[in-house]
Amino acid sequence: MVPTAGLSFKPIHFEQAMACPAAGLWFEVHAENYMVDGGPRLAMLDALRKRFPLSIHGVGLSLAGVDQPDREHLGRLRQLTERFEPFLLSEHLAWSRYGDVSFPDLLPFPRTNEALETIVRNIDITQSALNRQILIENPSLYMKLEGHEWPESLFLGELVKRTGCGLLIDVNNVFVSANNLGFNPISYLDALPRGVIGEIHLAGHSEDPLMGRGLLIDSHDSPISGEVWKLYDWLLARCGADRPPTLIERDNDIPAFGVLMAERDKAAAMMAGQRVVVHA
């Protein structure tokens, strides 16, 4: 069964997930939550994997960091990919570690040629250690930084060209960054290389308590907005016959399983080319 639209796996929904008959359903987990030695958490993922295709999404490899990816971390990631055989593996265009300190966040950097070389090196090391392709996700941005030498779409395109990695396009991140930094999200999507989008994320955002709509935050705590559905519709049309597997990414304020499945089913219908009314 070809994976179509999927959900971030939440252990509280395990029984409902296992009983769900939806064709094409798949699940994604954060790699770092499963870098443990044993116990019920891994046993649950084993059971889920026997039933559904699985995607592993890393948040801590720090590919844009000046240091090479941590060898022990790569080893643990490799163990996970060997045990669970995910159909997709992804990480972020961000850094999260400097020296001995690690930050549970995805941090920005000036897109310079030096940064490009650093990230090419880090992706090469990763794909070589794991013996498979990795997808790189575009970030949500909040600050205007000085010193960019590349626009982001072209920077991602250059990474694809030099390493053979794929892209994970998070449409909510595009919307949030475009809002915060003042660029056109359609122009951004149109500048991406074709045929290399291996996965799409859809998620919700919220407004900064002080700055309101002037500063949107990629909070993953609400339904997908009408504007993001519209951008997704545009991106699907641009992808043409390619139908990148699409994830409904919800990490906070988790609603009932049925609520998540309703969003998932909408994405699946759009992928199948059915006309779905998209309100702004």
Partner: peptide, 28 residues
């Protein structure tokens, strides 16, 4: 240098350099 300064600013509470005093930086 960028990452060293950014990381250092993440750990301080409002004593950071001017470029790290925005509401946008506060999100990180």
């Amino acid at each position: 240098s960028f990452q060293r300064d950014f990381a250092s600013a993440l750990m301080t509470d409002g004593q950071a350099a001017p470029s790290f005093r925005s509401q946008a930086f506060a999100v990180y």
